[in-house]
Design a protein around this nucleic acid. Structure first.
Lengths: 160, 160
DNA sequence: TCCATATAGTCAAGATACTTGACGATAGTC
DNA sequence: GACTATCGTCAAGTATCTTGACTATATGGA
């Protein structure tokens, strides 16, 4: 029944959600490929998402669970994997007998360093592709979206 | 409540990839929740991602595989699920005995209609949160990123 | 102090999404 | 007809995430 209609580029989505999703996936694919190419074979997107919530100085596991938008069991399983890979280590929290502290190992810190380098490379590439002005506008809009889910009367807050 | 000693807000990421990821996840969570609330209990993010590649007029399964960035087996399994849910149907391609055509059922078209409505609602909310100008700049930047991965001649370099 | 409740983390089982490998069927080409 | 490429399926395994049940420690009264 379908003639060529199907072959002539029927419109693909062009709304914020789709664009954000495509852009996010493209970034992650590029970043992950670069990280694995840099020798961090353990690097996956799910793990990267978790690591993004762990500051360089480490954190308590419970704080990590609050920040990430998943269940504590999911966080735990990702931590198990990262600990087994030698990227992180878990220590008992001296101030709370129930808690544990999550900390980067040397291997983990090395990965963070490489990650920073790759991020800069990708960002530089993006700027060269769409221009400094568009890139700045992109970041501004994304920060504004993140900042004001409930308060629409504010400009972008200070860049702390 | 919380002892503030080690809660001093160690910096969380603030780069393009992170911002895109967070924004994308937020959009998808909102969209998915609205769709499920609208009665489309079968709606998941993975399925939504696939449906995004299926135009209203349907498509060939092989074309779908090319568009989506995963394996043909992953596509097939998602199609199996969507077919079982009655959202899609697969017909033999009259022009190619090997191929199949993927088409929306009535139920699927109803979901598309609700999806369009939800998208507009979310977009309207975004505009009210960050302003028409920022929103337009966001879409412009995202489209530019998608358009020119290899050709940077769209905008003058304007470096510095 | 003792007890009730909340919090931090673990263990176990299952669902979903995705991957690789192997395979049969049809199409296109010679 | 034979060779090769494409289309789709079947099967098995991995990664990620979810729910439910459980232990241990902390906290806040009575």
């Amino acid at each position: 029944m379908v003639k060529e209609l199907d072959e002539k580029n029927e419109a693909l989505p062009d709304h914020v959600g789709w664009r954000l999703w495509q852009a996010s996936r493209a970034w992650q694919a590029e970043f992950g490929a670069a990280m694995r190419a840099a020798g961090h074979a353990w690097f996956t997107e799910a793990r990267a998402g978790l690591l993004g919530h762990i500051p360089r100085g480490g954190t308590r596991q419970s704080a990590l669970i609050e920040r990430s938008a998943t269940s504590k069991q999911a966080v735990q399983q990702l931590l198990d994997g990262l600990e087994a890979e030698g990227v992180l280590e878990r220590l008992p929290d001296p101030r709370d007998g129930r808690g544990k502290l999550v900390r980067y190992t040397r291997k983990g810190l090395d990965a963070l360093r490489d990650g920073d380098r790759v991020k800069l490379q990708i960002e530089h590439d993006y700027v060269s592709r769409i221009g400094r002005h568009r890139f700045a506008a992109l970041m501004d809009a994304l920060r504004s979206l993140d900042a004001g889910p409930a308060d629409g009367s504010q400009e972008a807050p200070e860049t702390k």
